[in-house]
Design a protein around this nucleic acid. Structure first.
Lengths: 149, 149
DNA sequence: ATAAACATTAGAGCTTACTCTAAGTCAAGC
DNA sequence: GCTTGACTTAGAGTAAGCTCTAATGTTTAT
């Protein structure tokens, strides 16, 4: 079973434009063509697309994804390099998650701050003693006592 | 104690250019100036900078951060809107973390795949029975049985 | 007092990742 | 046979977020 570019675009939540752009950038060398030149995706391409989208969404630039695809094309002599690439990407994702969790704490603090302020109908200032005391308490709550923004 | 733009740039891992750009975009209306016109940051600006960087790193565009800063400038009548803003941002961050965790699974699978392939000195094909069996096993291991890539 | 090392501005330029347009080709249905 | 709609390409345009330049001014150190 073969698929057109717009079927694939829909399946992966992209546009046909974007897929052609990826192709032009060298991300889709595996995609075959019909006699008349139209791209013809097959089931075995799905895994490629999934990994491209994964790398994309974890912040890898298009150029670097292209390099990975090229490594894959070169055969098993590049297995080591590919392993290294994924080790780096794993570290990068873990770091991103860590940063996001820290920011989530900050946002939780702001949520607490604004909902408390709203409840009382007044905006606290940083000189407000009660605010300071409660801030400390909240900090304890949201991130185990570390200082937060 | 007051700080120059490059001191602040260094402290927050930005460039002076970027800080001026943020200022131009309306993100730093609280920054004061010296007699001669140079920006003069003070300690009370640190919290602003921290929250701007937090919103930035959690994917909020500069324009939207500007809107938040403007809300803050308008006083307590905007507390409700600010609360809403942070509720949305919290959801957004949680979604980002969720997506990254899913991708981390995919990357862990690739790590397992490449390190196994390297150990044996051969690249598995998808028709390889042993590969398929082990893929199933690995999938169980990395994400509790959900299909991955 | 003079040079070096900062600061300022407006505005141009760059990169990434699309996003769209124009002009054309091809296959299917009426 | 002709229209419709999906495909193709090259290449222009766009938006975000910087990044840098040029011209100028100010502060600091010798």
């Amino acid at each position: 079973m073969n698929y057109t570019i717009s079927e694939i675009a829909q399946k992966y939540g992209l546009t046909a434009h974007t897929l052609r752009y990826y192709d032009k950038e060298g991300l889709l060398p595996f995609v075959e063509r019909t006699e008349s030149g139209a791209r013809s995706f097959k089931e075995s391409d799905f895994e490629w697309l999934a990994i491209i989208i994964c790398l994309k969404q974890t912040g890898m630039p298009v150029k670097q994804i292209k390099e990975f695809i090229e490594l894959c094309q070169k055969g098993k002599s590049t297995l080591g390099k590919r392993l290294e690439l994924f080790k780096r990407q794993k570290k990068s994702i873990e770091e991103q998650i860590k940063v996001l969790n820290e920011h989530l704490n900050k946002v939780n603090f702001k949520l607490w701050y604004y909902s408390t302020a709203l409840q009382r109908g007044l905006e606290f200032t940083h000189k407000h003693k009660k605010y300071l005391a409660e801030t400390k308490q909240c900090q304890k709550y949201v991130n185990g006592g570390k200082k937060c923004g």
